[in-house]
Design a protein around this nucleic acid. Structure first.
Length: 822
RNA sequence: GCCGGAGUGGCGGAAUUGGCAGACGCGCGCGACUCAAAAUCGCGAGUCCUAUGGACGUGUGGGUUCGAUUCCCACCUCCGGCACCA
């Protein structure tokens, strides 16, 4: 570094080494300072750190650094979500052990991450595939099991035929119902699996009070949970069995002219008459052969079969036929509906097709509609008719109890004991069993005599064996292991079998924020001393794609732990911010197959980490993202070189230095500080960089005008470097030293805005005539409205536009604009 | 179908409380330096016109207002979520 130019390739590794040697980013409990837990989503060790990781992590790092300079004791940890399918797929494809593949990738990515110059406290690193970690993942499973939150159920579950495993409902995406990971259409398989009772928390998960999460995530989660308010009503079959239905429209009960059961409904067998049995069996068989996509296609014509059985409508004692149809889903509500063809379009179509009665029970006042005349269902407002005691009750379009008809009927149903108010959710319980090897084994034992038995806590972890053969058979690889699964039953000591499935990796990531707090702690998942100091997470950053997966699971997990007395508070993460994604230069998603991948390593080698960081912060709104531009990065890169030269090259001749100019220096510095402070707070990274660029341009001019070396200049360089430090930590540290400030800029105190200095003393008065800009005048700040008006009217240009007319009205706005209306 | 979000120069984007549209940057043009190039520095540019001036201009059409990228209504396009959900 003899030529005095900016060489990021030299200064960056130098400072990274020093920061690490000094433990500059170690965060320890310090009761004397306010804590700040900044968390960014941990990566899956896929092999290489890509631009998306940089885009997620470096602005998050800048924000954490800013908080630190503001005086907070900031913890910003990092780790790896190390279990998962790609490791196993690599094993199958390339004959490399998943453990080896994973840990090699971790080594590589950790080294890559260190080139970011982020303030990660690596002592806190947690790797979910370490036995010391997954011991506690298993322990949490046992706690959930002991509290009745984990249960086993046989059900038709989603199965990915490519990944050869079951999936949670959340991992099946899109209209085509494809596997979230590999894009293969999922199929249904009837299997006995482990579930977590996330549905117990459906209601609570809908409340976001007290947490600052993006509206968008709240909407996604709310849609996903899918709350609907209505009533559960009990019909009776002629055989005396009860059929519960869920309806959002109890006010239309008198219009129920038939019932429909899902083909798989348990009562179908019993209710079907001998004459109808053959037809019913045939329909059921056809339904099972259809894929979910076919079956759930909304434009499909409705089909169904009469069971021969009848039920009794409790509200009017009417005998109504019971049908089966695949438009009724076993997985929603009770798997049975009361069909009200006059007021539900689906029921209407079905009734018309099969010649079933349509009876109007709600119609607009003054209309005389009868069911036979209807051309479509009427799901709108009106007055109840044909409804016994409720005739004349107005029905609005409001949902649930807000609708007077629904409210009245529901109350009546409860009194008559025909039914009750009920809330139904679309959310399903979380299926966590995976028929794969590279995950945390489910710590349960199946004993012929004792049934399902938990592995005693003192026997954890249930270690994953290393000697495994990977065959994509659809069976858990652990099942095929010669000896692993055989264990004595913890209760009766007879030979029993371990559960051979592993846990969904979202289970590992539901609590990693706790493991970071004490990754070496052996007495429990987390040292409560650390927990009590650091939790909750103050700021959580990551991609929106986790809205209905990780982010819903981790909230559930926290709430479940809270109810078990392990965690505290209603929510684990107080503030959430999502970054967008960096696309390839062709605006397509970066992918190897498209050949549009931009390698951060190469860019760091070419421009330096600071330039990559600054560009990622600058090029778009962080929560939006956008296409990478290999030309665009030249801008921030040039800016860093200009900043370097600005503070390392001596100033010009410095003739007569104008006091007014020095005042301008301070004004611009403090104006920028005000803006930049606000923008760091609000994650508006792009305007941080542009404000600093503007200030750079101004400082060049001031330097030219002789400001260099003055007190004002010294303050300007200090504040400038401090504002820059979170974004570009290496160059800021280097220049900080070169201007003679003590190491380290990153532990220096965030400067205070001098409001007085930031004030302008002269403003440019904008003068409009009829709302159109006509002139600009320099006036003293704080000039009275009267004087502003006078100044505006005195302007020659303005007079020209007034054309001698008298102003009707003169408006002064914000002390800086006059609008003259004629 | 329902629920969100977005639409601003050639490009990425800015405009914080309804008050100068286009900050900052990329790219482009011209110039300086250079034998030349790169780098660097300086200057220029929304569009159009009858050009020291003016008209138009933030997806489209209306509205409110002295004044609208910003608020309201309708529509178009794109993106995302949910969807035979009873």
């Amino acid at each position: 570094m003899t030529d005095n130019h900016y060489h990021p390739g030299e200064i960056e590794p130098k400072w990274q080494a020093k920061w690490e040697a000094d433990g500059l980013y170690h965060a320890d409990i310090d009761e004397s300072r306010p804590k700040f837990y900044a968390l960014t989503m941990l990566p899956y060790p896929s092999g290489d750190l890509h631009m998306g990781h940089w885009f997620a992590m470096t602005p998050s790092d800048a924000r954490a650094r800013f908080k630190r300079m503001q005086g907070y004791n900031v913890l910003f940890p990092m780790g790896f979500d190390a279990f998962g399918l790609p490791a196993e797929n690599a094993a199958i494809k390339r004959n490399i052990h998943p453990k080896e593949w994973t840990y090699r990738n971790i080594e590589n990515m950790r080294a890559q991450m260190k080139t970011m110059g982020a303030m990660f406290d690596w002592r806190r690193e947690a790797v979910s595939a370490d036995p010391e970690y997954y011991k506690w993942t298993q322990w949490f499973f046992l706690q959930l099991f002991k509290h009745g939150m984990a249960y086993r159920k046989r059900a038709a579950v989603d199965w990915c035929p490519t990944d050869n495993t079951t999936l949670a409902r959340e991992q099946v995406v899109g209209e085509d119902r494809v596997c979230e990971r590999c894009g293969t259409p999922v199929i249904k398989k009837e299997l006995e699996q482990w579930f977590f009772k996330i549905t117990d928390y459906a209601e609570e998960l809908l409340y976001f009070e007290g947490i600052d999460w993006p509206e968008r995530v709240q909407t996604l989660q709310t849609n996903w949970i899918g709350r609907s308010e209505g009533a559960r009503v009990f019909f009776k079959t002629e055989g005396g069995d009860s059929i519960g239905v869920f309806t959002t429209r109890p006010d239309t009960l008198w219009g129920a002219t038939f019932m429909v059961l899902a083909p798989e409904h348990p009562l179908v067998e019993k209710i079907t008459t001998e004459e109808q049995r053959a037809a019913v069996e045939e329909y059921k068989f056809a339904a099972t052969r259809q894929s979910d996509i076919e079956r759930e296609a909304t434009d499909k014509e409705k089909t169904g079969v009469f069971t021969g059985g009848y039920a009794v409508n409790p509200v009017n004692g009417e005998r109504i036929p019971v049908w089966i149809a695949d438009y009724v889903l076993l997985t929603y509500g009770t798997g049975a509906i009361m069909a009200v063809p006059a007021h539900d379009q689906r029921d209407f179509e079905f009734a018309r097709k099969y010649g079933l009665e349509v009876r109007v029970v709600i119609r607009p006042e003054g209309e005389a509609w009868e069911g036979a005349d209807l051309e479509a269902a009427w799901p709108h407002e009106g007055v109840m008719v044909n409804s016994g005691p409720f005739d004349g009750t107005p029905a609005t379009e409001a949902k649930g109890g807000a609708n007077p008809a629904i409210k009245a009927v529901t109350e009546w149903l409860e009194k008559q004991k025909f039914g009750e108010a009920s809330v139904n959710y679309r959310l399903r319980d979380w299926l966590i069993s995976r028929q794969r090897y590279w995950g945390a084994p489910i710590p349960m034992i199946h004993c012929k005599t004792c049934g399902i038995v938990a592995v005693p806590e003192d026997q954890l972890p249930v270690l994953l064996p290393d000697d495994i053969e990977w065959k994509p058979t659809g069976e858990s690889p652990l099942k095929l292991h010669a000896t692993w699964k055989t264990v004595p039953c913890p209760v009766c000591d007879e030979p029993a079998e371990r559960d051979t499935d592993t846990m969904d990796t979202f289970m590992c990531s539901s609590w990693y924020h706790l493991r970071y707090l004490s990754p070496q702690y052996a007495e429990g998942p987390v040292d409560m001393k650390e927990y009590n100091y650091w939790m909750p997470v103050d700021t959580y950053t990551g991609g929106i794609e986790h809205a209905t997966m990780h982010l819903i699971y981790t909230r559930f997990f926290h709430k479940a732990l809270r109810d078990m007395g392990i965690a505290e508070g209603p929510e684990p993460m107080l503030q959430l911010r999502n970054q967008g994604s960096v696309l390839g230069e062709d605006s397509a998603k970066m992918s190897k197959s498209k050949g549009n991948v931009v390698s951060p390593d190469e860019l760091v080698a070419q421009y330096g980490a600071d330039a990559v960081r600054a560009y990622l912060m600058f090029f778009t709104r962080w929560n939006v993202g956008g296409p990478w531009s290999s030309q665009g990065i030249e801008g921030p890169s040039r800016w860093l070189r200009r900043v370097w030269a600005l503070f390392t090259e001596p100033g010009g001749p410095g003739n007569t230095v104008q006091m007014a100019m020095l005042k301008d220096v301070r004004r611009r510095v403090h104006q920028t500080l005000k803006q930049v402070t606000r923008d760091y707070e609000q994650f508006e990274f792009n305007t941080i960089i542009s404000s600093l660029m503007e200030l750079t341009n101004d400082l060049y001019r001031f330097k030219e005008e002789g400001a260099y070396g003055t007190t004002q200049w010294r303050e300007a360089q200090e504040i400038f470097l401090q504002m820059m430090a979170p974004a570009a930590p290496h160059i800021a540290e280097e220049l900080w030293g070169r201007i003679g400030k003590p190491y380290s800029i990153h532990t220096s105190q965030w400067p205070k805005v001098d409001e007085e200095a930031a004030k302008v003393d002269e403003i440019e008065l904008v003068v409009q005539v009829n709302g159109k800009l006509r002139d600009k005048l320099m006036v003293a700040a704080g000039t009275s409205e009267e004087d502003l008006k006078a100044a505006a009217l005195a302007s020659e240009t303005v007079q020209k536009f007034l054309e001698g007319k008298e102003p009707k009205k003169v408006i002064v706005a914000g002390g800086a604009l006059v609008n003259i209306v004629v």
